[in-house]
């Protein structure tokens, strides 16, 4: 049970063709490529209205680029990192018109940061779908030094920003696209909570 215990973790969708779309932006990362391929199968008529954005950054090492290259679409844009994909998505949405539909598939961190961009452009819930893929490694915000750490798998870890030992709280902010972490030994320095693998 992945969701259990985390009451503010986002609830994700399953990618499916959104009605009313004139232009489809399908953006994914790593193992999210599988959901992109499935979606393309479900909308064979819309290939020429579809732009694919794919980042090969992957925590699990899965890469669907070869399969995606076989598909008949208007354009396939490939990026070495999620960050570069999201930056390009921002440029694309800045020039987007009515009827644009956005489909996101990948890690929680990828979806969260891409959603920050979509929210900035006021895309509504009927214009965006998000499907989680791969492991639930977490993007973490340090409440003390305001820095972010990607791919955290342990309940207790050292913050690269301020070197404090942090404990991850099961509390997620969509605005920051991150879970919160606070100093783990704040009460008694050196006295750490039990190490534990997060439900990744």
């Amino acid at each position: 049970m992945l969701i259990t215990g985390i009451k503010s973790r986002p609830v994700y969708d399953q990618l499916r063709p959104l009605p009313g779309g004139i232009r489809h932006l399908v953006a994914g990362q790593g193992s999210g490529g599988r959901a992109m391929l499935r979606l393309l199968d479900e909308m064979p008529e819309q290939g020429m209205q579809t732009t694919l954005l794919y980042s090969q950054e992957s925590f699990s090492g899965l890469d669907f680029l070869a399969e995606l290259q076989q598909r008949q679409v208007a354009e396939l844009r490939v990026y070495p990192s999620n960050q570069e994909l999201v930056a390009d998505l921002e440029r694309i949405l800045g020039n987007a018109r009515m009827g644009t539909r956005l489909y996101l598939s990948g890690s929680e961190s990828f979806i969260g940061t891409a959603m920050q961009v979509a929210t900035h452009y006021d895309m509504n819930s009927d214009e965006v779908l998000r499907e989680h893929a791969g492991s639930f490694v977490r993007r973490i915000w340090c409440v003390h030094c305001d820095s972010y750490t990607e791919n955290v798998t342990q309940r207790v870890f050292q913050c690269p920003g301020c070197n404090a030992m942090l404990v991850v709280r099961d509390h997620y902010s969509r605005r920051l696209a991150a879970f919160q972490a606070v100093k783990a030994d704040a009460e008694v320095p050196g006295e750490l909570p039990e190490a534990e693998e997060l439900d990744t």
């Binding site: 009451k7 503010s8 409440v143 099961d170 997620y172 902010s173 969509r174 920051l176 919160q180």
Partner: peptide, 22 residues
């Protein structure tokens, strides 16, 4: 709690950490 973290959260999100409420 952190104000910057909670900003933009919906009712069920910002109450997430409170036990026994939901």
């Amino acid at each position: 709690y952190s104000l910057r973290f909670n900003l933009g959260m919906a009712w069920h999100e910002f109450h997430g950490p409170v036990p026994l409420l939901k």
